[in-house]
Design a protein around this nucleic acid. Structure first.
Lengths: 282, 282
DNA sequence: CAGAAATTATGAAATTTTATTTCATAATTA
DNA sequence: TAATTATGAAATAAAATTTCATAATTTCTG
């Protein structure tokens, strides 16, 4: 725990004098990190040894060490936490909040990811005869993006955001095909059906979804991405970004696995786009 | 700038002895913040005054102040920096790198965003008769996502990722329509044409692109999102995430502007999806 | 290009600043 | 009232900084 929070937390376990120091620190921690023990003692109207004891009580080695901890608490500015957009927020405020919670959720997602599962997925993708990406609604966007990326690798890849096409495609799949189904909730009935159809037809099914959901149970491999529950309350925001970043990882793993030759291919695709562009004049 | 980066940066402006200190610090900054000036001097095989001078050269008041800065640099764990994927990276490594640089780029994007422009864009969007999102390739994904979000608001919204449809739609636009064109490079010829067609037909054109590009010049408003140049070398990764987060901001601004009634509407859309889902049993 | 002069870098020692310990006393609680 | 705990003055210890002499390096000059 952050030492500032800790001070605020334990405020009522402190003695009278210690509380004085605590209050000075909490009221302007930024000043304290540049103050000597004498200055702080004077500011709080108590003696230097009291400040020192206060620091020790907080499990630091002494005043300098305490300042170090304090500096670290302060370093994050506002740490990347999920902050909720409020009715009266200005553009400035909600923009910051959205960016910050997106970052916080990416951090969370990264921690929750199992890299060995990513590795296995990349294995399967590199060996696939055909790759399909299926998603609905917000997850269709992720599937769309995946198609875009894998298309560049010059492998057979399709994407559908339409239930019927997904079903038809699933029914026509065969051994050696990889089907990637994407759904944050993992509870969309039709997608669960698609997954099970694909498996019945011997395709390998990779699920990008939450672990333990009905969809997850139908998949050969589950790439689960945790994000804070309530961020997607009204609109899928954080989960989608986390899924897209996961797609980046898969695509990157894919290119690495395929080696240098394939990276040249990527460059070729990129170069082929040049003529449709205005030249940069710099 | 982070003091650790600064040290790494200015490594070759240091004198011989200073470089010794720098190297010790860079090799284990975590140890240094708990070391006294004497201990650090000894470790680097130089004298204490040299350490002190080193600290001052980095614009700190002295050794204790330097340690404070160092502690702050370290507070974020590994700070979110752009780290490049390497040929021999394991899944673990490239996953971390991708997530970290995505976060770093979001941070960068947030700093570069002009919130007053966001505010104006939200203004225009709330007043639009019809909203169109156009993008090609990776930016089509962003347009697709935007359509998804704004569709929930129950406003007329379309998205096209096809040049011809975009042109036709642009030609048929009229005063009161808002056209959002999305392109990271801002140099895709056909999209620039679409933007100019839309303007000729009195639509308001909002560009989500890099400032100063040909596309930007055709737009009424430019929402520019800066990301590190080289992250999108082979595939658009970071820029796309930044653009999507920007879309989240616009959508959020939109709901806030429209007030409580509209948020109820959002909930209604969400509820209507329920029947197509498996119930959660928790 | 040698060698002197000037400049800059460095560390030993002294000084100053800062933090910590000790211990006596005050405040609080039992 | 005794026991415990909290507190600060003074002493001590530790750490950082300054001063200054010397070493290393660079620049200039013949």
């Amino acid at each position: 725990m952050n030492i500032l929070e800790k001070i605020a937390n334990e405020l009522d376990t402190f003695s009278k004098s210690e509380r004085k120091v605590a209050e000075v620190i909490l009221s302007s921690p930024g000043t304290v990190i540049h103050a000597s023990i004498a200055a702080l003692a004077k500011e709080a109207n108590i003696s230097e040894p009291t400040v020192n004891r206060f620091c020790r009580r907080l499990d630091t080695k002494g005043y300098p060490d305490f300042k170090l901890h304090l500096a670290q608490s302060l370093a994050n500015g506002t740490p990347y936490v999920n902050r909720h957009v409020d009715e009266n927020d200005t553009a400035e405020e909600y923009t910051s909040k959205i960016f910050e919670s997106t970052m916080a959720n990416l951090e969370l997602a990264r921690k929750s990811l199992d890299t060995s599962t990513i590795n296995r997925s990349v294995d399967l993708l590199t060996q696939a005869n055909k790759i399909s990406f299926f998603g609905l609604g917000a997850s269709a966007v992720v599937a769309h993006d995946a198609q875009n990326k894998f298309f560049r690798f010059n492998v057979p890849v399709v994407y559908f955001d339409d239930i019927l096409m997904q079903r038809m495609s699933a029914i026509n799949s065969r051994q050696g095909d990889v089907v990637v189904v994407i759904s944050h909730t993992g509870r969309t009935k039709s997608l669960v059906d698609v997954a099970s159809l694909a498996r019945e037809n011997d395709a390998t099914v990779i699920g990008i979804t939450t672990a333990g959901t009905p969809l997850a149970k139908e998949c050969n491999i589950v790439l689960s991405v945790d994000v804070a529950e309530d961020t997607d309350l009204y609109m899928p925001m954080a989960s989608r970004i986390a899924q897209l970043t996961l797609i980046d990882c898969l695509a990157t793993g894919f290119t690495l696995r395929r080696g240098t030759k394939f990276r040249d291919n990527l460059k070729k695709v990129k170069d082929s786009l040049r003529s449709s562009r205005f030249e940069r004049k710099d």
